[in-house]
Design a protein around this nucleic acid. Structure first.
Lengths: 204, 204
DNA sequence: TATTTTAGTTGACACTGTCAACAATATTAA
DNA sequence: TTAATATTGTTGACAGTGTCAACTAAAATA
């Protein structure tokens, strides 16, 4: 469990990894710096050389999730047809959330710790949003009016994706007595509804 | 700040109220039973007579939010036309989330504490969902197939509403550099898109 | 080589949730 | 009425937490 004998090469990086593991084991509300230190076989104050507080370390963990998330979205299959591309991105968004529920909750579920070093966290978060903006730009064009519609549609689609995965992962879900067919087809149905709404919008 | 001299009539109820206030002041992650006790001018162990643990008290606070939320939805303006009624409910949902961001986060943002006494919490949560189901039932009818469509649409609409308010309240929102016109029109746009999707669905 | 910076240590402090033992008051049984 | 019991509070302790302060050793720099 502990690496008591191996020296830590890069403690700063190791702290992020260990903190991530502790959260995975005990939940974010039970993350403790002393647990992190113990896991790394180092004194309880050692992490403070690299992070000013527990929240600063937590921010680093979340920032790392955002980088992974953005590169996951970037790594999707790309299509010439913007509508197809949008669908691919939606699928990738859902896939990430399903494969990494913990990381998704860290990014979008918990409130970010208010530390100064959030700047990179924010940059990575906005980058993800811009990926969505770019796809929509290919559908709407680049006129002045288009820019507004891009952001409105981006918010609509993001709301949908985010709401969908949040609810499907939430405690509430299991108490709703949904028949299996409904449960399995919710993502597809939401996708279809978005498509219908977007199509009617672009045809105008 | 403290009611040192006034005796507490109903400590159990007072604990819920005080805990709610502490959360409002310091955030859910800084809720402390000892703070609650101090606020009520009782010993740090007094709350344990009524709640087995901190999580049990927290569950009671969240349950209370769900009751308020459900009665807020019920208290909306009702319409004969189911489509109009659905719109009214959407508006009411958003209104609650905007007026009570903290309570909304408690219900849907944080993971519920896993205590046995969640049963009433769950009942109230499901009740809210059933309000939505009932409105949709008036649009879809009561056939076997309709029941499935009701739940699929309910999930779609709920995803949308939930995603919308979550994102608008999230930290991410302020860093996206949205022009004011976009910011102000996001709820209306999302509403319109839902309407379009639902109309095309019902006409089939 | 002398000095300063970096990266780690140990020890202390106030705070937390919760267990145990005790006291007083209210309820119930005899 | 009196005795037994249950309810609702109290104080004190314990292990665990985040973080401040003072110290040490090694590395980088002058």
């Amino acid at each position: 469990m502990q690496n008591i004998n191996l020296p830590i090469i890069d403690l700063k990086q190791a702290c992020v990894k260990a903190a991530h593991e502790v959260i995975a084991e005990k939940g974010i509300e039970h993350l403790s710096l002393r647990d992190v230190a113990r896991k790394l076989g180092v004194s309880h104050q050692a992490p403070y050389r690299h992070y000013a507080s527990k929240d600063h370390l937590l921010a680093a963990v979340i920032a790392r999730c955002f980088r992974d998330f953005a590169s996951f979205l970037d790594a999707r299959q790309h299509f010439e047809d913007p509508e197809e591309d949008l669908a691919a991105m939606g699928g990738q968004y859902i896939a990430y959330a399903m494969q990494h529920p913990l990381e998704y909750r860290l990014m979008f579920g918990s409130t970010w710790p208010d530390t100064a070093s959030n700047s990179e966290l924010i940059r990575d978060a906005v980058h993800s949003f811009n990926i969505l903006r770019n796809v929509l730009a290919r559908m709407h064009g680049n006129s002045e009016a288009a820019l507004i519609n891009i952001d409105l549609d981006a918010m609509f689609i993001w709301s949908n994706m985010h709401g969908l995965v949040t609810i499907m992962q939430s405690d509430a879900m299991q108490y709703l007595d949904l028949v299996p067919h409904v449960k399995n087809n919710v993502p597809k149905h939401v996708f279809d509804m978005i498509c219908v709404a977007m199509k009617s919008r672009l045809s105008k």
